[in-house]
């Protein structure tokens, strides 16, 4: 019995499971990604684009499926699941790189002087305890004075001088100062110096005229300048008359277009009915006056001038 033609018919019906390409397809199962690096065949591309694309897509999906079925699986209540390997292809960033932080005043100074950053260890060696202790924090080295059992009192100290409180105040002061510097760094980073100077000058000008006498009887500091306002600027009296005419006509044209725009907008919202068009239609193109006359039964006076009312009423 010859089954070769049956097999051939079967083979023609179903395409091969393995995909043969000149350059093998690049499959990344971790991202479910297939890349076809083969150059496009111009002949089939030009002949039937849709078919060409479909065959390309089919090959790609076939290769992906084949790679998925070769992966290790684990069983689950929904059936076997393939365990995807970690992705190989490097996806580009979705967002731009974060901008570097603007340098603080100290960082700028250090860079200018060539001072390199030294990392401080959190632990420091304590000679007395013969042990490593924290530099700061609970039982830190910076709170050593507080735990001392005997204190040296300066000669000029008050009677109620508390060495523990003095040490604490000094420490707190340093913290506050650092906080203030950090705030200044933030302010500096948010706006350039010139802008801040401008604002300061504006504020100063406002405060100078904000007294009861509008600054007239205030004490003058030496080197203080008179406040100058913005001077008005006008065109010269004698310009070529042609340019003046052109400017005026331009302004007129602009005003006209503006007023047209202004008129159009509210009408669209208020009244969906185009009144002008409706009147035109009802009066047969003779205008609202003619229509009114007709309805009130008024006679022949206006008959002769009917043409004038055409489209007259806006």
């Amino acid at each position: 019995m010859d089954v070769s033609n049956i097999l051939a018919a079967h083979a023609a019906k179903y395409q091969a499971v393995t995909v043969e390409k000149e350059t093998p397809l690049d499959v990344d199962p971790g991202l479910l990604l297939v890349t076809d690096l083969n150059p496009i065949e111009e002949e089939t591309y030009n002949e039937n684009l849709e078919e060409h694309l479909q065959s390309l897509a089919r090959d790609g999906v076939q290769a992906l499926m084949a790679s998925l079925f070769s992966l290790p699986t684990k069983t689950s209540p929904d059936g076997p699941l393939a365990i995807l390997p970690p992705p190989v292809y490097q996806l580009p960033r979705a967002k731009p790189l974060p901008k570097p932080k603007p340098p603080t005043k100290w960082e700028k100074f250090a860079a200018a002087k060539g001072i390199s950053h030294k990392t401080k260890e959190k632990k420091v060696w304590d000679e007395e305890k013969q042990d490593w202790v924290d530099r700061w924090g609970r039982h830190g080295k910076n709170k050593e004075v507080r735990e001392q059992w005997i204190h040296e009192v300066p000669l000029n100290a008050d009677a109620d001088w508390d060495p523990r409180k003095a040490a604490r105040d000094e420490r707190k002061e340093r913290v506050a100062k650092n906080e203030k510097k950090a705030q200044q760094n933030l302010a500096r980073a948010s706006r350039p110096q010139s802008e801040r100077n401008e604002e300061i000058e504006r504020t100063l000008a406002t405060t100078r005229i904000s007294t009861a006498s509008m600054g007239k009887f205030d004490k003058k500091l030496d080197g203080e300048k008179k406040i100058r306002g913005v001077k008005r600027k006008f065109d010269p009296t004698e310009v070529p008359i042609a340019t003046e005419k052109k400017n005026s006509l331009d302004l007129l044209a602009k005003m006209e277009s503006d007023s047209k725009k202004m008129r159009r907008e509210p009408r669209g919202e208020e009244n969906p009915l185009n009144v002008r068009k409706a009147i035109n239609r009802a009066s047969g193109g003779r205008g609202g006056i003619a229509l009114g006359r007709e309805l009130s039964g008024g006679g022949g006076r206006g008959r002769g001038r009917g043409g004038r009312g055409r489209g007259g009423r806006r």
Partner: peptide, 30 residues
């Protein structure tokens, strides 16, 4: 004596246009 600024021209022209409409062009372009 000086020419009008744009805002002043606008004020004058709108007032005049209320009476003479588009004939305002004939005043400027004589």
């Amino acid at each position: 004596m000086r020419p009008l600024t744009e805002e002043e021209s606008k004020a004058v022209f709108t007032k005049l246009a209320n009476y003479i409409g588009k004939n305002l062009v004939h005043l400027i372009d004589r």
